[in-house]
């Protein structure tokens, strides 16, 4: 992630572009329900610019035309930075007093990490001093429940780069096509990933689905219930007994279905058809992933 943002600042040749890019990140941060990666380089660059500008203003006479304008602009950019940091803090507060999950640490800035440590320590000290120390020994620990990751949020997003075949959900594949969106194509989607911002896109949220080969038995049962409900009622116990995971599912053929105990030929062929469709879908996704990886390598940064 930090490599990418380094590249970003390098390609941004002027302060104007930095400001523009920062404004886009501010909009994304405000509207996204979860934390996005911290844009340290952009913030630092803008703060530098503001410092220069303020020093210049101090030397300027009250030739009021330029002074007023510069001052206005400085205040505007300062507001953006303040609000950006403020909204991040608000999101951090949501999971205090617990610590964030380890994979969230990369999204935070150093100051934010120190802040979290301070707050967590202070809170637990407070709990201990006010209540827990009075409890009988053995009950002096406060165990908070596991925080389930917020995966089911809906967002509006604007497509900046074409990304065909994004899977917004286990079933639906959507093509993000930028050609249609010269003004805006805002998609309302159930975003099931927290902050997988793709390399050049801060507003496009891409979900990485679990590939079929990694499915556990419970996932296979869910898929079965969803796609062929009547087969599910009849043969669910067979799938459970033989502990069919994603790996065995992709390697199945009609003989293996028969060996499991499904003898009715119509059911067998229908079930096999569904399995083939699932395999095809996951193969398409894999091909698209490979294509995209290949394209990204040959063209490092576009847009």
């Amino acid at each position: 992630m930090s490599d990418n943002s380094d590249n970003e600042v390098e390609e941004l040749s002027s302060a104007a572009q930095v400001a523009q890019r920062f404004q886009e990140w501010w909009i994304s941060e405000r509207n996204c329900p979860v934390l996005l990666p911290y844009q340290g380089e952009l913030v630092d660059c803008l703060l530098d610019q503001l410092d220069h500008m303020r020093q210049g203003l101090a030397q300027l006479k009250a030739s009021d035309l330029r002074a007023g304008l510069h001052r206005l602009e400085v205040e505007r950019i300062q507001y953006l930075i303040n609000d950006y940091l403020r909204s991040r803090l608000k999101k951090i507060h949501k999971f205090l007093p617990q610590r964030p999950a380890p994979d969230m640490n990369v999204l935070l800035s150093d100051q934010e990490r120190t802040f979290i440590d301070d707050v967590v320590n202070a809170t637990f000290k407070h709990f201990h001093a006010s209540a827990l120390s009075q409890m009988p020994t053995g009950m002096q620990q406060l165990s908070l429940p596991e925080r389930a990751e917020e995966r089911d949020h809906y967002v509006f997003c604007r497509v900046k780069k074409a990304a065909p075949g994004v899977m917004v959900d286990a079933d639906s594949i959507v093509d993000f096509d930028v050609a249609k969106s010269s003004q805006s194509a805002g998609h309302l989607l159930g975003s099931n990933t927290s902050s997988q911002a793709s390399t050049n896109d801060d507003e496009l949220r891409k979900k990485t689905p679990v590939p079929v080969v990694l499915w556990k038995n419970a996932d296979v049962m869910r898929w079965l219930k969803r796609c062929c409900a009547d087969q599910h009622t009849m043969y669910a116990h067979l799938f459970l007994e033989h502990d069919i995971t994603g790996r065995s599912l992709v390697r199945m053929n009609e003989c293996s279905l028969e060996k499991m105990g499904i003898t009715n030929p119509d059911h067998k062929s229908e079930l096999f058809r569904e399995i083939l469709k699932l395999k095809l879908k996951s193969d398409i996704l894999e091909i698209k992933d490979l294509e995209r990886a290949g394209a990204d390598q040959s063209r490092p940064s576009s847009n």
Binding site: A170, D171, K207, L214, R222
Partner: peptide
């Protein structure tokens, strides 16, 4: 169904919005 790794799908038919 919280133990599975697939995320919940609520679509009853596949959606491919190739819209104009």
């Amino acid at each position: 169904e919280q133990n599975s790794t697939i995320n919940d799908s609520s679509t009853s038919f596949s959606v491919s919005m190739q819209v104009s």
